[in-house]
């Protein structure tokens, strides 16, 4: 009980912190079994359903889970709200596309997308982490825009797969790559939270000065989160490059990728493992559903939802689950009232 209240007061991102403890409870077996079931089902989809639409939808969900989760590692766990996520995604796409279409074995080209993004993260990490909070956000946004403009100036032409590749286009293969990537990213995020670094990373998020004062290597932990985050963002970009038949290279650097990652993570629940997963499913399904009938309305809906989440339901969908129980509502109200008084 006490623990709950304390966790509530820490705020919106407590769910990630409770999960290791939750596993030790008696219902712990449910999680893994459920997860295994979902994974098996997801793996069997191409066998069970022979509809390209559905497969494409599932591909997009996996891509966006990776995108959201990778952003979540940096912003949700380490508290560094980056608005430059598109830079990593774009670099990954550019590297994989270029190498792959020039004949490199795809798995190698794919892996290099992640590594290239990490290399870029190494370049910008130390200087940008001198910036705090909102300044970090606008600084990273600036960097991503510099890249986007530079790429669109130098690579103005659309990139299209060779005819032979299009003829042999295999969506099922791409879906499996996406599924594997999404699962790896989720696994990496979960491992990170169970690792010895998690305490330091979460401490940096909660209070940087206090973390520094207690001897946490603040910069080191931020960089670690950034490298992991950029690695998977780069791979997501690589996956995008593998899937798209033709696109403008600068499209992969569009700030929309950052914004989608932000929406997905906030809608699902910032700083939680399940958040970006739920968020991506919700995001893609709603987008797909509304895009048919009401073209721009889904973005307006997401915008309103997003503002409401930031202002009123900081837990997102994951938090809403907790709040639905009466006791949790009472506690949340209490802690809100106290927050307002302070």
């Amino acid at each position: 009980m006490m623990r709950r209240i304390v966790m509530r007061r820490i705020g919106m991102r407590d769910v990630a912190m409770t999960s290791p403890a939750a596993l030790t409870r008696s219902r712990a077996w449910r999680g893994p079994v459920l997860m295994a079931g979902v994974i098996a089902l997801a793996a069997l989809v191409p066998v069970l359903i022979d509809k390209q639409d559905t497969l494409n939808l599932l591909f997009l969900i996996c891509l966006h889970i990776t995108l959201g989760q990778s952003w979540n590692i940096l912003a949700g766990f380490a508290g560094q709200t980056s608005l430059g996520h598109a830079a990593f995604f774009g670099i990954g796409a550019l590297v994989t596309r270029t190498l792959w279409l020039n004949g490199m074995f795809f798995p190698v080209a794919f892996l290099l997308s992640g590594l290239a993004a990490v290399a870029f993260a190494m370049l910008i990490g130390v200087p940008t982490f001198r910036l705090r909070g909102a300044y970090f956000a606008i600084g990273t946004l600036g960097i991503a825009e510099v890249l986007r403009i530079t790429v669109s100036q130098n690579l103005p032409l659309i990139s299209t797969m060779p005819a032979a590749e299009i003829a042999a286009y295999n969506l099922t293969l791409r879906y499996y790559v996406a599924l594997a990537l999404a699962l790896t990213t989720i696994g990496a995020a979960a491992l990170l939270l169970r690792s010895s670094w998690s305490l330091g990373i979460l401490a940096v998020r909660e209070d940087e000065e206090a973390a520094q004062a207690t001897g946490v290597n603040v910069l080191g932990h931020k960089l670690l989160a950034l490298f992991i985050s950029s690695f998977f963002a780069g791979l997501a970009g690589g996956l995008f490059a593998f899937q798209q038949i033709s696109y403008y290279p600068s499209a992969a650097f569009s700030p929309v990728w950052t914004f989608d990652a932000l929406l997905i993570t906030f809608i699902g629940g910032l700083g939680t493992i399940g958040g970006p997963v739920l968020g991506a499913i919700f995001f893609i399904l709603v987008r797909q559903r509304l895009a048919v009938t009401l073209v721009e309305v889904h973005q307006i809906v997401f915008g309103i939802l997003f503002i409401l989440i930031v202002l009123v339901f900081p837990g997102g969908l994951m938090g809403a689950w907790d709040r639905l129980r009466p006791r949790a509502i009472a506690e949340a109200l209490r802690s809100r009232r106290q927050l307002h008084k302070s």
Binding site: T81, A137, I300, G303, F306, I307
Partner: peptide
């Protein structure tokens, strides 16, 4: 900043 990002989506699509 986060809230205004939501506003961006709304205003742009309106």
């Amino acid at each position: 900043l986060l809230i205004s990002f939501g506003l961006v989506l709304i205003l742009q699509n309106v």
